[in-house]
Each structure stands twice: as C-alpha cells, then as structure tokens.
Simulated scan of single mutants.
Amino acid sequence: MEEKWLRKLIRNCFLQYGYDNESLPLNNEEWKQLCAKILAKKTDDGDMDLYEIVHDVIYDYITK
C-alpha cells in the first residue's frame, strides 16, 4: 500500500477530529508508527474496512 495515500487518510481522519493542517500533532516517526499500526491491523483483520481501521488507530492515538 502506498504510504502517501495512507498518510492522506490519516490526515483526513485528524481533520474530522477537529485538528487542522497546522496543528497535526505528528512528527515523522509518529507518522511511520501510525502507518505501521494500520497496516498490521489490516493484515490481522482483512475483513475490516481500511477507513474503519484508520479511525480506530487515530482514535486510540488521540485518547491515549
């Protein structure tokens, strides 16, 4: 899966949670970690929709 597209999904999810492009709380390492978590969860649960996985991972990130 292309990382650029996955980053766009993550960014859009943060926008839905009230962040804007300037206030995204991620450094480069955190971007990579979130992408890795999403891909791992997609591999583990292939039946789950990718958008749902992204929202679950971002929600966990924001609330912890």
Score class of each variant (00 low, 15 high):
S23P: 12
W5R: 12
W31S: 00
E22Q: 15
S23W: 03
E2Q: 07
C35Y: 01
E2L: 11
N28H: 07
N28G: 05
R11Q: 12
W5M: 11
E52H: 08
I53Y: 02
L24Q: 12
G46L: 08
D56Q: 09
G46M: 11
D44W: 03
E22A: 13
K37H: 07
D20R: 15
W31G: 00
C35T: 11
L39D: 04
L34P: 01
K37C: 09
I53C: 01
L39A: 08
E22M: 12
D47A: 08
E30M: 03
E52P: 10
C35D: 04
E3T: 03
E29N: 01
K64W: 14
D49G: 12
D45N: 08
D60I: 04
M48V: 09
R7W: 00
L9H: 14
Y59G: 04
S23V: 03
Y17G: 08
N12S: 13
N12Y: 10
Q16H: 11
T43L: 05
C13E: 13
N12C: 12
Q16R: 15
K64E: 14
Y17D: 09
W31P: 03
Y59F: 15
K64P: 07
G46D: 09
D44Y: 06
L24H: 14
E3N: 09
L50Y: 02
N28R: 06
T63P: 05
C35N: 05
E29T: 03
Y59S: 05
K8E: 13
Y51F: 13
K64T: 15
V54S: 03
I62P: 15
E22C: 11
W5T: 04
D44H: 03
W31M: 00
V57L: 02
G46R: 04
R11M: 10
A36E: 00
D47H: 07
K41E: 10
D44L: 06
N21F: 11
K4I: 05
K8R: 07
T43Y: 08
Y61H: 09
P25I: 09
L39R: 09
Y17Q: 09
D45F: 01
V57W: 02
L6Y: 09
I10P: 04
V54I: 11
E29D: 06
D45Y: 02
K64L: 13
K32T: 01
Y59Q: 07
E52G: 15
T43R: 10
K32A: 04
D44M: 05
C13D: 08
R11W: 05
G46E: 11
D20C: 10
K41W: 04
W5A: 07
L9N: 15
I58C: 06
K64A: 15
V54C: 06
E2P: 15
G18R: 12
E3W: 08
V54N: 02
K8D: 14
V54Q: 02
K41Q: 10
Q33T: 10
L34H: 00
N12Q: 14
